[in-house]
């Protein structure tokens, strides 16, 4: 994952901010592109954000998540996929955004989803996506997929989102979903019909990579949630 130095600086007081501003100007001036920087998670910052927003119970959950990361760090991919999928499916209750956030289609960060203990389909997908990338699963193999989901045996369909794992670009993906807790190859999910997919690849290329400072970031929902994650200490 990526991060930018100006994001870190924002946490570090005014002097550092000015220094960063100076270096940004200089870097900009000399045409140096502040390219994608490997993401580094900050557990302390995560706990702080959690405590500020959701209190002690939130911190408990985030600690669990952090210990999950520790536990899975050296495990094989299948275990990682399964454990992560299960962790979020268990921790987060599936509801509509409008009930949780007071707005339709609010994209929550894993911290927000865990803090509330509730979330909607894309909140699961985002949380799983971020957790897996933290565990070192290549970004290119993970794609968030918009699907049309048929509920039960009825003809009711809903707009839904799942996380797909592509072993190779042309391979058939495995689906991490909250409707069906086990991970299965896509072909077996006859209840789902894929529409479009994306991931965060290619997002942070180019010269302007800062989250909040970049006006473009606020225009896209996907970018916005990434920016918030950076703020909270995920990236």
């Amino acid at each position: 994952m990526t991060n930018s130095h100006s994001v870190q600086d924002r946490r570090l007081g005014r002097r550092r901010f000015l220094a960063a501003l100076g270096s940004t100007i200089v870097a900009g001036a000399f045409g140096i592109n502040a390219g994608p920087v490997a993401g580094n998670m900050d557990p302390a910052q995560l706990r702080r954000s959690m405590r500020d927003q959701y209190g002690a119970s939130g911190v408990e959950v985030i600690d669990e998540w952090l210990s999950l990361l520790d536990r899975l760090a050296d495990r094989n991919l299948d275990t990682q996929l399964r454990e992560v999928n299960d962790f979020f499916n268990r921790r987060i209750e599936w509801v509509d955004d409008i009930d949780v956030w007071g707005q339709k289609d609010y994209w929550a960060t894993p911290l927000e989803a865990l803090g509330k203990g509730r979330g909607d389909c894309e909140d699961y997908s985002i949380a799983k996506y971020i957790t897996l990338t933290q565990l070192g699963v290549p970004v290119a193999t993970l794609r968030m997929i918009y699907v049309k989901a048929r509920l039960g045996r009825s003809d009711t369909t809903i707009a839904h989102m799942v996380l797909g794992y592509y072993e190779t670009p042309s391979a058939e993906p495995r689906i991490l979903d909250n409707l069906q807790p086990s991970i299965v190859p896509a072909r077996q999910r006859t209840d789902l019909e894929p529409v479009f997919s994306f991931n965060s690849e290619g997002l942070w290329t180019g010269s302007s990579t800062s989250s909040k400072a970049d006006p473009v970031a606020r225009l896209s929902r996907w970018r916005r949630v990434l920016a918030r994650m950076t703020e909270q200490g995920f990236l």
């Binding site: 794609r143 997929i145 391979a171 058939e172 072909r187 529409v195």
Partner: peptide
């Protein structure tokens, strides 16, 4: 990426 069903 252009999807073809589940596949890229």
């Amino acid at each position: 990426v252009i999807q073809d069903g589940w596949q890229q």
